[in-house]
C-alpha cells in the first residue's frame, strides 16, 4: 500500500509547496481518508512547508504510512536546518508571528491533525512531526 509513497520531498522553492500538497493528497486519498480529513492534512502540510520556506529557506518533507495494530494513519515529518524556534510555546500561540503572517499556521496545524510534535534547537533547525489516524475502520 505504501510502496508508491514518495519517500522525501525537497523544499527549496515556493513551488515545492505545491508538490508537497499534491503528494500528501495522493497519499491520504490512497490510504482511504475522507475528503475532509484529506483537506485537513493537506492544509496542515501546506502550513508547515510554507514555514520552512519562509523561516528556514529550505528543508524536507517525509511521508510515512503508520500501520498500528488496530488502525492506519499518515505521518508527515517536516524538517529543516534553519534558525530554530526560540520559544515553542509562544510560537504555538494563535496570533503569534515573527514574520508578518497571521500566526495561525502552527496552532492551526495542530488542531487539524491528531498529533503534533515539535523538536527545535536554536541555530540547528526544526523538526515537526504530524499524524492523522483514519477514522471508522
Amino acid at each position: 500500500m505504501n510502496d508508491s509513497l514518495p519517500e522525501e520531498i525537497a523544499l527549496r522553492t515556493e513551488t515545492d509547496i505545491i508538490v508537497v500538497r499534491k503528494s500528501v493528497r495522493e497519499a491520504a486519498t490512497r490510504l482511504g481518508f475522507g475528503i475532509t480529513d484529506v483537506t485537513r492534512i493537506i492544509t496542515a502540510a501546506s502550513e508547515l512547508a510554507r514555514n520552512v520556506f519562509l523561516y528556514a529557506g529550505s528543508g524536507v518533507v517525509r511521508c510515512r504510512v503508520l500501520n498500528g495494530s488496530d488502525r492506519v494513519g499518515l505521518e508527515l515529518i517536516v524538517e529543516d536546518h534553519g534558525p530554530g524556534i526560540v520559544d515553542i510555546d509562544q510560537a504555538m500561540q494563535p496570533g503569534y508571528t515573527s514574520g508578518g503572517g497571521l500566526g495561525f499556521g502552527l496552532p492551526g496545524a495542530k488542531r487539524l491533525m491528531d498529533e503534533m510534535e515539535i523538536e527545535s534547537v536554536v541555530g540547528k533547525g526544526t523538526k515537526i512531526t504530524i499524524k492523522k489516524w483514519r477514522k471508522g475502520t
Binding site: I35, T36, T39, T43, E47, F104, P107, G108, L112
Partner: peptide, 14 residues
Amino acid sequence: IRPSVAITLTQLGL
C-alpha cells in the same frame, strides 16, 4: 467554498 474547505478554515482559526 467547499464543505471540506469551510471546515478546515474554521478549524485553522481563520
